[in-house]
Every structure is written in structure tokens, then in C-alpha cells.
Design a binder for these strands. Structure first.
Lengths: 338, 338
DNA sequence: GTGAAAGCGCTAACAA
DNA sequence: TTGTTAGCGCTTTCAC
């Protein structure tokens, strides 16, 4: 392994001169820089990252912290970010939290100890105080979900609209008993989505009857059980809105396997725009969310922020709006169901 | 940032004692280890990787190199590996190649210069010579795809069976004009799959007529075009087998949007076991591949290999068999199509 | 402009 | 069983 000492010896100068020349320090003469660069190239010098990092310089690692990479939301983001950061010489590391605050803390600890240049995180519902502290010491950006405690740089979708739009669509179709299966309100996104649901339902006036089923964001089981419970009621809902991709998948699976007639018996509006939603039953009415674009914007911003060395954590939020896609799974409330 | 010195000071012992206790050195008394661990946890101590690496210990980074993380095959693997490696204190880094050998080389360069502990790679069709050389210097395991040049440690599925089984299934249903849409033979997996197709088709004797359409593994466009071409023929196939997840998705999409009658007009057998395959049209007959299990096995093996410090690159291959799942998209060849 | 020297946090030889 | 000490390769004062 060639070190700056080797180069220094070869050039009969001190190691610090070489180090400075390599760092393009303004105090070093152009000719010296020239010679150093030449010899370095010739000897096949490669900077020792570990040593550099020990001196406080952060690595080229960027930590991506998500609940579960198998969720297409997050793998799409990972892809977009990877593309974006790679161009600038950053390496993406992957950490999964399972939406568990302890796991999240462990991961953040790992990342900070690895001296990452920054962290892009989809935070859990209630990050640990220690997590907050550690993130405070590292440049970081929140993705999708936002916690005030974790700073003011955030890239997300308009969660409110993402549920408001499909719900309003159903209300306009005449539905009054509308169910919502989604994430708990303790998640900031969960809260906004529930609010979107309620506000849209309020458009129906006094007739509107919301049936909310809120559970863990990653739990398919919860969604299936919630759906069964709803359908078993004496006055089951005539329409259903889901508030997360995983819940949508679970609901589609359950509806499919239990043979519920959609939209005859139940109108359904999903969340996210998976390819398969198109061919599910009559085609699923759903909200498309520009996840890839969002992640790219986040990556660009991150790079931009890293370039200006000064600790920049100026508040910045980007909210991307969703798009309602109407397919066959929603239709006007029928006389039978009315 | 808490260092071993802080712990040492708190415990009134020397830093080396703490270091040794943390490293579970046999010379340290159990009670001391106990106390150190306790205080370390309490103070939120996190080892400084950079410092450790400088002492020659390789990093705790493991590079995962895949074509595209959005492919559920690969995100499933990333998840399983992450879980597996995290327990042993490893951090997974993500690199995408787009199945391009130049990109692959760049990524491998990055990883080796970052001193990764090892690399788990789904190699591209024809890795660059430099890639081969660099991988030779780093512990690595091939996943899914296998190149002789990249060593003898490999975890994969039985590609041959994965296509042989569905094809035989179709032959047994009486189909004779069977098409195959899959990856090019230049990929080792692609070759085995094509062979599986041909061998199964041979069971039909002289009547069997294979129609092979081979293209880039990641190209949806190719698969759609290939399907259109097949259906436009004067004597279109009565059955279709796909040889990769992405091609399967593309085919399902195309069949769905062009309104082809499955299985009336065409029997279809897919590749992989996506949740959505169940509810596509009449339910897709497909081969389930134990991707998660495969990745876990690979992760365990990696950890095992790392533990025994000696450079161990003894050949090891693990081949996991697929399972055919018969649903509604395949049926005996009808009189109209015969 | 350049050199000398002091560490960064950790591990590992050498002492005790 | 534990303490002392010397670096790993680099950056960064402080001298000159």
C-alpha cells in the first residue's frame, strides 16, 4: 500500500507537503502539485479512506434508512437515490428498521459510527430521543414521513390529498358509509391521511359515516382482519379507502380470496400505483404517487447541500401532489347498497 | 462521541482493558467484561470503524451488487441479507449495475477502495476483466448467476428446472407450439433456462415446436414486442413460458391490455411468485423460487466464512429447486387450437 | 511555500 | 489478569 510518506520520500519533501498538494491546498506551488500528482499516479497511490475518516473527514457513505426495502415504495426510492448519489461519488448503504424505534436507533448508531456523510431516513413513528440526538449531529433529510424533532428538511408527498382525493371521489359517487384502512395516527403521515379521509367524508354532510381502522403500517394481518371485521358488520360499508401500499395489497388479497364483488358489493380505492393494480379484478381506482421523482429531488438536494461545506440545515420542504386514477373498482352506490 | 477512553476513565481501568473486553478477549475476566459491556451500553458507546479499519481490520461493510433493486427478486434478497448480516454487525451497501459491465466495474472499484469485508454479487452477463481481478482480491459470493471466472462460491436456483417444469407441464397438457420469452443465453442462468425449455419440449417428440424469443433480462419493451410478434404469426403458439420476473410482468401487462383470452387462446406459465400473480386474470401458473431462503443461506455462509479468518474460498455451490404452482392460466390444448 | 510534530481511536506487542 | 506504549495514514496546527 502506497502512502503519502512513500511519495514524500520519493520526492524528497515532507509528508505534509504531499498531503497538501493532494488536497489542492492553496499554499502549495503549482509546480509542486504537478510533480506530486505525477508521482502519485505513477506509484498507484490510493488515499486511505480509513485514515482520512479518522481525521474527521466524513466518508462517501450515505445511509438510507427505511422500514422495509421489499416495499416497492422504498425500493423505488433506493433506486432513484442510488442513481443520483452515485454520480457524485457517494455510496448508498441500506438499513431497515421494521418501523421499530429500537432497531432504528441501532441502525443510526451504526451509521454515525461509520462516519456517514449523511442520512436519508423514513423515520419510525416515535424515534428514540437518542436517535434524535445522533441525527442532530449528522446531515440528514427526512423522506416521506416528517417529525418536527428530526429537523426541517423533508421531502414528502401530500398525504392529506392522497386520501382526500379518493375519498371525495367516492363521496361524489354517492357513497355514505365509507371505511378507511390505514396507518395509525401516531405517524405524521398517518395523521394527515386520516384527516384527508375525514374532511372528504364531511363533504357528504350529516349522512357521512366513516369507519376507521388504523393499525401498524407494515402489517398485512391487521389490514386483512380489519377488512373482515368491516364486512361482517350488520351495516357494512359500501366503499373502502386504503391508506398505505401494504394495506392495499393485503386488502386486495383478502377481497380476492373471499370473493367479494367489487365494485358491486363494495367500491374500493387503493393507495400507490403498482403495476398489478391495473389488472386486479375490474382495475383498481387508486392514487399515483410520484415516488421516484420525489427521491430524485431528495438526492439532488442532498448533493447540493453537501457541496456547500457550511453546515446547512436551512428548513426545506418539498411536497409532491398525488394523482387520482379512476378504474373499475369504484362506481356509484347502487340501489341495493343505498 | 464516546470512546473506549471514556469508558476506561469511568471504570478506572486502562483503555486496552476496555478494548479487550469489548473484543471478548479470553484474557479478560468475565466480571470485567460484564462491567465494561454494561457501562458501554449505558454510555451509548459505538466503536469507531475508521480507527478500527486503520488497524488493518477490514470494514464491516458488505457490498451487495445487483442489476436493479426495484426488481422484487433483488429487493427480497437485499432484505434477507440485511437481516442476516446486521446481526453480525455488518452493514450492507447497495450498488446497482443495470446489467452493464462498465457500471459494474465502477461499482466494484468503489467497493474495493472502501475496503469492504466482502461482496455479494449478481454478476452481469460478461464481467470486465478488471472486475474479475478486483473480485479476486476480495471475499465474494455470487448470487443467482454464476460465472466460472468469478470463483466457485455461488448460491442460486435451479434455473434449468425453473423453466423445465412449467414447460413440461404444458407439454403434458398437450401443447405443441410453445413459445418462450426469456433472457439471452449469454447469461449463465439464461442458458440453463433455455436448455430447460428445449429439453422439456423434446418430451413432445417430433411434434414439439419451440418459438424462442431471447432478449435483455431487464427489458420490458423487448418482452412486449416479442409477445406481439408471436401472436401476429400465422400459426401462433398455443402456450407461452416466460423465463424472468420482469418479462413475466411485461407479458401479463401486454396480454391484459390487448385482451388476449387466457387460457382459451393461450396458456401462460410465469416465472417467480409475485403476490399479484394470483389475481392476474384466471390466476397465473408459475414457478415459485425460494429467493428469500436463498439469500439467507448466502448470508449465513458469508458470515461463517468471515468468521474463520483464514482466506477461505473453497468451492461451494447451493442450488435451490423451484416449485411449480398450477393456477388457471394453463389448461389442456383445446380442439380449436390443436 | 514548506517542514515538524501532534494527534484522531483503536489494536497489539511488550511489561508487570 | 491488567497496564503501558507504540504506532496505523492522514490532516492540521504551529513554526520557519
Amino acid at each position: 500500500m502506497i502512502t503519502i510518506k512513500d511519495i514524500a520520500a520519493r520526492l524528497q519533501v515532507s509528508p505534509s507537503t504531499v498531503g497538501r498538494a493532494l488536497a489542492d491546498d492553496s499554499r502549495i506551488s503549482a509546480s509542486m502539485k504537478q510533480r506530486v500528482l505525477e508521482v502519485a499516479g505513477e506509484m498507484g497511490y490510493v488515499a486511505n479512506r480509513a485514515a482520512r475518516m479518522m481525521r474527521g473527514v466524513s466518508s462517501n457513505l450515505v445511509g438510507l434508512v427505511v422500514p422495509d426495502i421489499r416495499n416497492s415504495f422504498f425500493s423505488t426510492m433506493a433506486h432513484a437515490l442510488s442513481k443520483c448519489l452515485e454520480q457524485e461519488g457517494y455510496q448508498l448503504t441500506l438499513s431497515e428498521t421494521d418501523d421499530d424505534r429500537q432497531t432504528e436507533l441501532r441502525q443510526i448508531r451504526e451509521l454515525t459510527s461509520a462516519n456517514v456523510a449523511g442520512i436519508i431516513i423514513v423515520p419510525s413513528a416515535k424515534p428514540h430521543a437518542e436517535t434524535v440526538r445522533l441525527l442532530g449531529m449528522t446531515p440528514h433529510i427526512q423522506l416521506l414521513r416528517k417529525h418536527a424533532a428530526l429537523g426541517e428538511q423533508w421531502f414528502g408527498i401530500d398525504d392529506y390529498q392522497a386520501v382526500y382525493q379518493p375519498t371525495r371521489h367516492l363521496v361524489e359517487l354517492g357513497h355514505r358509509r365509507i371505511a378507511y384502512i390505514g396507518s395509525l395516527g401516531e405517524l405524521p403521515t398517518g395523521g394527515a391521511r386520516v384527516k384527508g379521509f375525514r374532511d372528504a367524508l364531511a363533504l357528504a354532510g350529516g349522512d357521512g359515516q366513516g369507519m376507521e381502522q388504523l393499525g401498524a403500517p407494515g402489517s398485512r394481518e391487521f389490514a386483512r382482519d380489519a377488512l373482515r371485521g368491516l364486512l361482517a358488520q350488520p351495516q357494512p360499508p359500501t366503499a373502502l379507502v386504503t391508506g398505505s401500499v401494504l394495506h392495499t395489497f393485503a386488502v386486495l388479497e383478502e377481497l380476492w380470496s373471499s370473493g367479494v364483488d367489487v365494485p358491486g358489493q363494495l367500491s374500493v380505492a387503493g393507495f400507490g400505483d403498482e403495476l398489478a393494480f391495473r389488472w386486479w379484478g375490474p382495475g383498481l381506482t387508486t392514487v399515483a404517487l410520484p415516488v421516484s421523482e420525489l427521491a430524485t429531488a431528495c438526492g439532488l438536494w442532498f448533493v447540493h447541500r453537501m457541496k456547500q461545506k457550511s453546515a446547512n440545515s436551512a428548513p426545506y420542504s418539498s411536497i409532491t401532489p398525488p394523482t387520482l386514477i379512476v378504474r373499475g373498482s369504484t362506481r356509484p352506490v347502487g340501489p341495493a347498497a343505498a
